[in-house]
Design a binder for these strands. Structure first.
Lengths: 327, 327
DNA sequence: GTTTGACATGCAACCGGTTGCATGGCTCAA
DNA sequence: TTGAGCCATGCAACCGGTTGCATGTCAAAC
C-alpha cells in the first residue's frame, strides 16, 4: 500500500467533526439528507483538514467513475484534433474525464488500448476503428461503445458521409470537361475510404468518366507524394484524394515535376482540414469532425442512461468546397 | 450500486477453482508465490468465466492506478498533437493510461481540469500551463507534476528553448540588411512568448536593429492576419512571429495587400509545425515538441519512483530553419 | 524418528468511500 | 398525555481487490 502524502480520509473528518463516516459522505453527496448546520460544520472541518473525496474509492462503491475513453488512429492527423476537442468539451460539461488513446492505425495496438481502458471507463468512443467487427461487438457487450466513421450494425455510430460530397465533386469535374479521373485511396481498413471510393466509382460511372484507383495506403503527405507518378502514368487529369493530407502530398509531387495546378492538373481533397493553407488553396469536401466528436459523446450519454436505440446511426452530410485546385 | 452486466469477481473465480480469493489475486499479480499448476488452474477457470481484474478495486487497495494526465491549452494547435502522441507512446510503454485535458487557454478551466484529474492519476503533465505559480506549487504538493514550457523553480520541467533559435534568426536578418524588425507576440501568460520576445529584444539590440513589438494575443491565424497593418505601419521589413500559426496569418494578410514574400516583406515563424505547407515555405525556428512530450513522461517516471531532483530543468535547444520567406 | 525450515495456501484486515436499514428524538394531533 | 410519524443520524455491510501473518505439509537434516 503506497501512502499518499497527507491523505485525509472520510474517517478523519468524521472523527474531527464528531459524526459518523456516513454523515461526512452524505454531506458531500446527499446534503439534503442532513441539517444545513451539520453540513456546514462537516464541510468546515473537511476544509481545514484539506479533505478531498477519493475518486477511486467512490468509483468502487458506486460502480460509476465518470470516465470515457476516446481512441483515434493518429492524433497528429489534423482531422482528429477538432474532434478530440469537441468530445472533450462535451464530456467536460457533464464532469466526465476522457482518456485519449492513439492506436497508430494498428489494430492490435488499438485492441490493447481498449483492454487497458475498458476497466476504468463507463464507455468508449472509437474513431475510425480498425478492429474486426466481431471484436467490437464483443467489447460492446462489456461497455457501451460509440463508433465514429465505422459502420457496425448494432453499435451506435456517427458517420461522416463523404459520399454525397464526393458525388458532387465528380459531377463538378465532369461538367468542367475532365474525362479520366483518379481516386487515391486511404487506409485499407478504413470505412471512410471504402465509402468514398465507392461513391467516386458510382458517380464516375454515371457521368461516363473513366476512373483509375490508386491502391490503398495510409493517410500521409508521403503517400500522396508517391502516388503522383502512378496517377500521371494513368493519363488522368485530376486526382481525388482520400483526404487533404494526401492531397497535399500530391500537390507537392506535382510541383516537383513542374506541373502547375490547376492548369496542368486538378486536385481534390477531403475533410477540409487544411483550410487555405495549401498553395493554391485546396478544393475539398467539407467534413465536420468536431460535430462528430460532440455527437458521439451525446450518443454515449444516451447509451449510459440506457435511452436511445442500440442501433443509432447518424449520418453527417458533406459538400464540395470549391477553392483553387480544380479547373 | 450500479451492477455491471456479467461482472465476474475474484470471489467467483475462487469458488469455482476451489481456492481462496487471495490465491486468485496472487495468480494474477504474484504468480511466483504459487505452484505453476495452481496458477494454471486458476487462470483456466478465470478464462472460462471471463474474469477481468477490476482496475478500480485494485487501484483502491494498492494506491496506484497507472494513470497520468496531460493538459494542453489547445489540442487543435498543431504544436501539441506530436507532443501528445509522444507522451502517449511513452506512457503506453509502461502500461500507463493518459487522460487528456484541453484548457482552451483558460486558467480557470485548467484549474478545474487539474482538480478533476488529480484524484485519479499518479501524476500530471501540464503543457504551457497558464496557472499561477502558487497554484502549481500547491498541486505539486499533492501529486508529482511535470511542466512543459513553463519555468517554475522546484517543479521538474522541460523547456523548449527558442531563444537561441530566435537569436540566430535576428542575426541572420541583420546580415541580410534588415534594419527594422517586428516581433508579433503570443499569449500573454505564456512562458514561451516571454522567452522568445526577450531573446529577440536582446539580439536586436546587439545587432543594432530597431524593434517593434506587436502586442500580446492568442496564437491563431486571425491574430496574425490582424497584426499585419500594425507591423506595416511601424515601417518594418520583417516580422518574427510567436509561432508558425501566427506567421501563417501574417503571410495571408500580406498576400491580401498584394505584398509578395520574401521580396516585399520577410516573415519568420517558430515551432516548425507547418513544414513547407505554407506558400512560400516558411522560414522558422525548429521545435521538438514530441521529444518534449516523451521527456516529460520520463521525468514523471523518475518523480514517481522518487528518483531525480525535484528541480530538474531540461532545455531543448532549437535552431533556425531557413526556407523561403526570408530575404 | 524428531526437528527444522521452506514453501504453498488460507485467513482476515484493510483501502475509502456508499447506502439500506435501524434507532432515537422531536413534533403534532387526538 | 400519549401515540404516530417524520427526520437526522448512526450502524454495519458492501464494492473487489491486496497483503501481512498464520497454518499446515512435506522434505531434508540431524
Amino acid at each position: 500500500m503506497i501512502k499518499r502524502r497527507g491523505t485525509v480520509t472520510i474517517s478523519q473528518v468524521a472523527q474531527a467533526a464528531g459524526v459518523n463516516r456516513s454523515s461526512v459522505s452524505r454531506a458531500f453527496t446527499k446534503p439534503y439528507m442532513l441539517t444545513p448546520e451539520t453540513v456546514a460544520r462537516i464541510k468546515a472541518v473537511a476544509d481545514t483538514l484539506g479533505y478531498v473525496p477519493n475518486h477511486t474509492a467512490r468509483a468502487l462503491s458506486t460502480g460509476r467513475n465518470s470516465n470515457l475513453a476516446l481512441i483515434v488512429p493518429d492524433v497528429a492527423n489534423p482531422f482528429f484534433p477538432p474532434m478530440i476537442r469537441a468530445a472533450q468539451d462535451a464530456a467536460d460539461a457533464q464532469d466526465y474525464c476522457v482518456f485519449l488513446g492513439n492506436s497508430n492505425e494498428d489494430p492490435s495496438k488499438e485492441d490493447r488500448l481498449v483492454g487497458r481502458f475498458i476497466g476504468q471507463v463507463e464507455g468508449l468512443i472509437l474513431a475510425s476503428s480498425r478492429l474486426p467487427e466481431k471484436r467490437i461487438l464483443d467489447y460492446a457487450e462489456q461497455r457501451p461503445i460509440v463508433l465514429i466513421n465505422r459502420d457496425v450494425a448494432g453499435v451506435p455510430r456517427v458517420l461522416i458521409d463523404s459520399s454525397n460530397g464526393m458525388t458532387e465533386a465528380v459531377r463538378f469535374l465532369a461538367e468542367r470537361g475532365h474525362k479520366k479521373i483518379a481516386y487515391v485511396s486511404g487506409p485499407s481498413g478504413s470505412w471512410s475510404n471504402k465509402s468514398r471510393r465507392s461513391a467516386v466509382r458510382k458517380a464516375a460511372q454515371q457521368a461516363g468518366l473513366e476512373l483509375y484507383v490508386c491502391p490503398a495506403q495510409v493517410s500521409s503527405f508521403e503517400a500522396g507524394l508517391s502516388a503522383v507518378d502512378r496517377i500521371l502514368d494513368a493519363g488522368t487529369t485530376v486526382a481525388i484524394a482520400f483526404d487533404d493530407v494526401t492531397a497535399h502530398g500530391i500537390l507537392a509531387g506535382l510541383e516537383q515535376r513542374g506541373i502547375t495546378v490547376p492548369d496542368g492538373f486538378s486536385v481534390v481533397g477531403c475533410d477540409d482540414v487544411l483550410g487555405d493553407l495549401t498553395h493554391p488553396p485546396l478544393t475539398t469536401i467539407s467534413s465536420r469532425s468536431s460535430e462528430a466528436g460532440g455527437l458521439a459523446v451525446s450518443l454515449m450519454y444516451d447509451a449510459l442512461r440506457s435511452v436511445g436505440l442500440k442501433d443509432a446511426r447518424y449520418l453527417l452530410q458533406t459538400e464540395l468546397v470549391v477553392r483553387q485546385t480544380t479547373k
